[in-house]
Amino acid sequence: MDVMVLAGGLSHERDVSMRSGRRVQEELRDAGVKVSLHDVDSSLIPLLRGREDVVVWPMLHGASGEDGSLQGLLELLGVPYVGTRAREARVAWVKSVAKAIFARDGIATPEYVTLPQSLFREVGAEHVIDAIVDRMGLPVVVKPARGGSALGVSLVTERDQLSRALVHCFAYGDTALIEAAVTGTEVAVSILGTGDDAEALPAVEIQAEGAYDYDARYNPGRVEYFVPARLTPDDAATVARTALAVHRNLSLRDLSRVDIILDDQGIAQVIDVNVTPGLTETSLLPQSVEASGRSLTEVYRSIAAAAYDRE
């Protein structure tokens, strides 16, 4: 087995992708696996053609890496790869579509509305903002309808902040998802495996100093993590059960991370799902693996081997 880790790309999350890719490469190399790290460029397809011993581990964050595009290309080439299939990745990538599936399946998620930038121009931004506040109240969270790493995300507590939050959001995508802000305990639950064999790792509790934004996620010091999360056994079981339901109902594969806020009523509100969770030195899935008593080296080797044997 020869593992080719793909990282980089052209999205806003390129730097995080490279850091995640290097960490995967290091762990696989420590496991004795033949592994290389490649950017996604015009040399990729020639490198992959005719290879029968290779399995690809996509570590691209953001568009093309998580929206099913790269996965679709690998399927066209007949190359085995780690992670969720193209069709399912497309569904998970669009937050409003994923949230509609959650609602259908009885999985709690905050109230939301999805609005394109063009609509604000066509009917008048101030009128749309008035409608948002009248219907949803405040506070709300404004975020790109597609994307990750908290890029373009803002917490809005006053009406006058909404315009700036929307401008910030539209810098990262042409459609905004406006979501009711939920208070409670913020946790991330990482999942390993596929289907009935999937398992939830210990939840990570996130306590941020200020907003849990891009800077806080990837630069040590601004966030305190507790793993396992400081939850009662019943609450820990609730968030694990909810994350597993998300992973299975969206037909995700190999690994994922589900972001949840356990609200004041003890309801696990799903905030987001990540089909290519970050694997940097400050990322949450590696913390969960270590808290489970397993080594990253062996877990990553097993993930790559399962993908290689599957195809």
Rank of each mutant, 00 (worst) to 15 (best):
E199K: 13
G68F: 07
V91S: 03
R49H: 07
T280G: 05
A229W: 00
A171P: 12
S11T: 11
G32W: 10
P139Q: 11
T114V: 13
L60M: 11
G32Q: 12
Y214G: 06
L166G: 03
G278M: 02
Q287S: 03
R301V: 01
E281L: 11
L115K: 01
V289N: 06
P286I: 10
D234P: 02
D67I: 10
S283L: 01
T276A: 09
V94F: 07
G152C: 11
G32N: 11
S20Q: 07
R23W: 06
A31G: 11
V123N: 04
A100W: 09
V187D: 01
G152I: 14
D215H: 15
D254F: 00
C169E: 00
L166V: 06
L252N: 01
A171W: 12
F120N: 04
A237L: 12
D41L: 02
S292V: 09
G147I: 09
W57M: 12
E27R: 06
S295Q: 06
V3M: 00
A131K: 13
I191F: 03
L252G: 02
G68R: 07
A150N: 14
P286N: 12
R310A: 15
V16D: 07
Y308H: 15
D30V: 09
T109S: 03
P80L: 00
V128Q: 00
V204Q: 01
G173A: 05
I271R: 02
A203W: 01
E75M: 12
A304S: 05
I129N: 00
D67H: 14
V153A: 07
L119A: 12
S42I: 14
G173Q: 08
L119G: 06
D105L: 12
R90Q: 15
E75L: 06
G152L: 14
V141M: 11
A268T: 02
R230E: 01
S42W: 15
S43Y: 08
R301W: 04
R294P: 10
L77D: 02
A268W: 00
R222S: 14
R23C: 08
L201P: 05
R87L: 14
P233D: 07
A245C: 05
A98R: 04
P233I: 10
L231Q: 01
L73A: 11
R164S: 13
L201N: 05
S20K: 04
P277D: 01
V239S: 02
G210M: 08
H247C: 02
I45E: 09
I303R: 04
K95S: 07
F120L: 15
L231F: 09
Y300R: 04
R217I: 13
R222E: 09
E26T: 14
R85T: 12
P228R: 02
M18S: 01
R90T: 14
I206Q: 08
V223K: 08
D130L: 05
V54T: 13
S256R: 05
P46S: 07
T232E: 12
